[in-house]
Design a binder for these strands. Structure first.
Length: 854
RNA sequence: GGGCGGCUAGCUCAGCUGGAAGAGCGCCAGCUUGACAUGCUGGAGGUCGGGGGUUCGAAACCCUCGCCGCCCACCA
């Protein structure tokens, strides 16, 4: 490859550089993990995106984080498996396809099961390909030879095995219970899939007569459910209703007798303090019903229509039934009053339909044993959370864990491996039996239910590696190391992976859980396609390049809980790529085809700027490394950015241009040393521009992707040089400020006199960077104060008194504050000695400066 | 109803264990300085959400109030 810079365009062009490198990495097989490598293993199973469509900002952010860690871990000597995949996302994908059908004026029922399945298959193919392409575009160094899909034959086998294993442990059972029923999807969903939205409804107060006289008034927002009431409940300590307990209330419109029971769940202060109990249509009522052995009446069909045979409301949709019930109550004098009422109503997370709690026969998974082991693992500190606070989110949820409704009544998903013969015998088996093991009957039917999509993703960290087979991959790569995801799926996904990992593999699936921030739209709303607030990562990549997007992602991912998207920050990292690109050019030009300069030893460095910049490299090496190790990626990218832009380019390059032009070997060596290290350290964040530049550095260069991470450079740390050079920068900044603010001051030239002894090298550097002469005695003229010296500009006959006055005011203000502190006897008595000394020195400095202003 | 996070320059955000208010973008002024105008130099701009407290000293620690956002929760 050419080492010349003639083919380096003035501006860095990500679009021209990026695609080529991905192909080269891939064909060099750099992403493929070797299970028999002697290196330590580092494994990450990428959270499989739902196969519902394009990748969004959250995915881009997550991919950037995963990939930076993958690259860092390779460079630090690990055999890295970064395993990609995607998720069939049963209910979500079914909804996407149903919406498509709806646009075509069709329903899945019209289409039929077979055609629907074919459609789903086609969807998998096209969207799966899209997802893979987008991950490549993001530069994700994933092991494509191990790509997994939750609907692959092998994965399905893992899922079936897990189901059977749970069943054999006696943890899976089928029972009718109250569930969250989605009338649109015609399926049960879990509590975690219910989203609560505020509704403005009406609270109806209804009179229930008491048998033998009296009445009780009850408040409800869902009067239609009263048709399925089986009791009235009051708080045991409520004196108002004590006399009614044990009697019967008469259900209006129906006439059924309802026992009046007492239960602690009833709030005395809400409504009238009396509750109608509808065990078939309210989770709390269901529990009360269980405690009191109440009848359960199923008052609604699965499609949301009333199921009250013999009553005029039978067959009506719930809302129509409500109107009619209210109308009739009013007509018959049972309605006491109505008042507006705001409350939360459950909606289906995927289709937004209002959830109807109702009784349904479902498959349940007992969680106690797994929950307890997960708690033990947490106790033992086996999973570290970043930020730590999210561990509590997880633990709180575990503590309140109930049995998991794993069955779904969908068309799309893993079919439950439960089979029934014609004689009603049940068989639970990984493979479909050809005949009933009990009676030999060969007419076998599979249970129609499918599994909650989270059931299969719960197995991700080991099912992807071949479980239940004892594969080489499983032995080599389990447990994995890190899982990075959004906080909203801590309970849905992370917790369940931990539980199943411990259960089936005997160990937690990963040691670190990293929860990244949520990217909001710039106005603070949620980024979502339906709101039109989404930002397409591909557009950003087109405009700014993948590297810029990734560097931005690293800079925000762990910095706070939420981040409002700010495109100018992505643009800022594009400029950073450009800066790095251009900063390298004078160095490459200087070296040309010449010999590769040796890395300088600290003792061989003479010039202050060289000692300083190498000391800075050493610090930055530590900061970037530490940032990654501690999952504080913003610290890493900030350190890299500041080093390249504000230290290497702004100061060192400016100070060293002449030497580079002259072919000075030390300058070349220092420059290459800086670039070599910086490029390697920035590679995980900006893989493309760094790979391109690396290939252009002198000498034989393999991929930076498999270069070694920069070793600790502490022997280059030179505290003295840093202090001295900071002094120098400070004085240069003061000089530049005068040049711009003092009328008539020249852009270069003038003379400074310093009040302290400085070595010749330092003086030389100051003179060069400040564009001034450094002399022992100032020529006649108006002196301007520097913190430790004075400057005179020949062209300035008299300094504008306003400039001096303004400066003096500034200094005086500072001095007053410091002096006030020093004059406080308490401060002198109680502050640490060092702080007092600092303040005194500062006061001294300020006073001197003010004096010199004359 | 419980819990968590945020409120710092016009905007988006840094400021970790309390000792001189920061960056990027935007704005103003000046620069075709042979790496970069995706640039360089300078500048304006903040009583760190309000109120208490702890401390010699608080943007940082404690209490409290107020918004904004998230998570969990069986009050009809």
């Amino acid at each position: 490859m050419s080492k010349t810079i003639s083919d380096m365009p003035t501006a860095y062009d990500a679009g021209a550089i990026e695609p080529g490198w991905y192909a080269r990495w891939e064909s060099a097989n750099l992403f493929t993990a070797n299970p028999s490598s002697p290196k330590p293993k580092f494994t990450m199973c990428f959270p499989p995106p739902n196969i519902t469509g394009e990748l969004h900002m959250g995915h881009a952010l997550q991919t950037a984080i995963y990939d930076l860690i993958a690259r860092y871990k390779r460079m630090t000597g690990n055999e890295v498996l970064f395993l990609p995949g995607y998720d069939h996302a049963a209910i979500a994908t079914q909804n996407v396809i149903e919406k498509q059908l709806a646009r075509e004026g069709k329903t899945k029922e019209e289409l039929g099961r077979e055609a629907f399945d074919a459609r789903v298959e086609a969807w998998y193919k096209s969207v799966g390909a899209t997802i893979i392409n987008q991950l490549r575009l993001l530069g994700a160094s994933m092991d494509w030879s191990r790509l997994r899909f939750t609907m692959d034959e092998r994965y399905v086998h893992s899922v079936m095995t897990a189901f059977v294993a749970f069943y054999d442990r006696g943890w899976i059972y089928r029972a009718p219970r109250i569930v969250n029923w989605c009338p649109h999807d015609q399926s049960a969903i879990s509590d975690l899939e219910v989203k609560w939205q505020e509704h403005h409804d009406t609270l109806y107060y209804i009179r229930y007569p008491i048998e033998g006289g009296g009445e009780v008034v009850i408040a409800t927002v869902r009067p239609e459910t009263m048709l399925a009431d089986t009791a009235v409940a009051v708080n045991p300590s409520d004196p108002r209703y004590r006399s009614m307990v044990g009697k019967n209330a008469i259900l209006p419109l129906v006439g059924r007798k309802l026992p009046v029971v007492v239960d602690d769940a009833v709030e005395k202060d809400f409504g009238t303090g009396a509750l109608k109990v509808t065990p078939g249509h309210d989770p709390m009522d269901y529990d009360i019903g269980q405690r009191h052995g109440l009848d359960v009446i199923n008052g609604m069909h699965l499609d949301g229509r009333m199921n009250v045979p013999g009553l005029p409301y039978d067959g009506l949709p719930a809302l129509e039934a409500r109107e009619k019930v209210v109308h009739d109550l009013k007509a018959q004098g049972y309605l006491v009053k109505e008042e507006p009422y705001t409350h939360e109503v459950g909606h289906c997370d995927r289709c937004d339909a209002i959830i109807e709690p109702l009784i349904s026969d479902q498959w349940w998974l007992r969680m106690e044993k797994m929950r307890d082991k997960a708690l033990d693992a947490s106790e033992a500190g086996k999973v570290r959370w970043h930020p730590e606070r999210y561990e509590r989110t997880y633990l709180d949820w575990l503590h309140g864990l109930r049995d998991w409704n794993i069955g779904r009544q969908l068309w799309l998903g893993h079919r439950v491996p439960v089979y029934y013969c014609k004689n009603g015998h049940r068989t639970v088996a990984v493979e479909r039996p050809t005949e009933c093991p009990e009676c030999g009957n060969r007419e076998i039917q599979q249970d129609p239910d499918v599994l909650d999509t989270w059931f299969s993703s719960a197995l991700w960290p080991f099912a992807t590696l071949g479980w239940p087979e004892e594969t080489e991959d499983l032995r080599a790569f389990y447990p994995t190391d890190m899982n990075c995801t959004a906080r909203e799926i801590i309970n849905l996904w992370v917790s369940r992976m931990i539980m199943t990992g411990i259960e089936f593999m005997g160990d937690v699936p990963f040691s670190d859980v990293v929860i990244h921030c949520q990217v909001q739209a710039s106005d603070g709303r949620r980024m979502s396609k339906s709101l039109g607030t989404g930002v397409d990562p591909r557009e950003l990549i087109t405009k700014y390049g993948t590297d810029a997007l990734r560097a931005w992602a690293a800079s925000v991912a762990m910095s706070s809980q939420d981040v409002r998207f700010d495109e100018t920050r992505v643009e800022g990292y594009r400029r950073f790529c450009n800066k790095l690109w251009n900063g390298a050019k004078p160095v490459l030009r200087s070296i040309g085809d010449g010999p590769v300069p040796n890395v300088p030893e600290p003792d061989d460095l003479e010039l202050i700027e060289d000692r300083w910049i190498l000391s800075r490299v050493a610090s930055v090496q530590r900061e970037i490394t530490q940032g990654i190790e501690e999952f504080a990626f913003q610290d890493s990218i900030n350190a890299g950015y500041g080093f390249i832009w504000n230290e290497f380019c702004d100061w060192w390059l400016e100070a060293s241009k002449d030497r580079l032009r002259a072919g000075d070997e030390t300058a070349q060596a220092v420059a290459i040393f800086c670039l070599d290290n910086a490029i390697r350290m920035l590679h995980p964040f900006m893989p493309f521009v760094t790979e391109e530049l690396w290939s252009r550095l002198p000498g034989e260069r393999d991929f930076v992707m498999r270069a070694a991470w920069p070793e600790d450079l502490h022997h280059y740390v030179d505290g003295q040089a840093e202090v001295e050079f900071e002094r120098l920068m400070d004085i240069v900044n003061q000089i530049r400020s005068y040049r711009k603010t003092v009328p008539g001051a020249p852009a270069k030239g003038g003379a400074v006199k310093l009040f302290s002894e400085n070595d010749a090298d330092w003086t030389r550097a100051l003179s060069m960077l400040g564009q001034v002469a450094v002399i022992d005695d100032l020529p006649p003229g108006k002196e301007l104060a520097l913190t430790e010296g004075s400057i005179v500009f020949p062209a300035v006959a008299a300094v504008d008194p306003a400039v001096t006055a303004k400066k003096r005011t500034e200094l005086q203000k500072d001095l007053d504050r410091v002096q006030a502190k020093l004059d406080n006897p308490e401060f002198r008595a109680k502050a640490p000695e060092q702080v007092i000394a600092e303040q005194e020195a500062r006061a001294e400095e300020l006073r001197a400066s003010i004096d010199r202003l004359g």
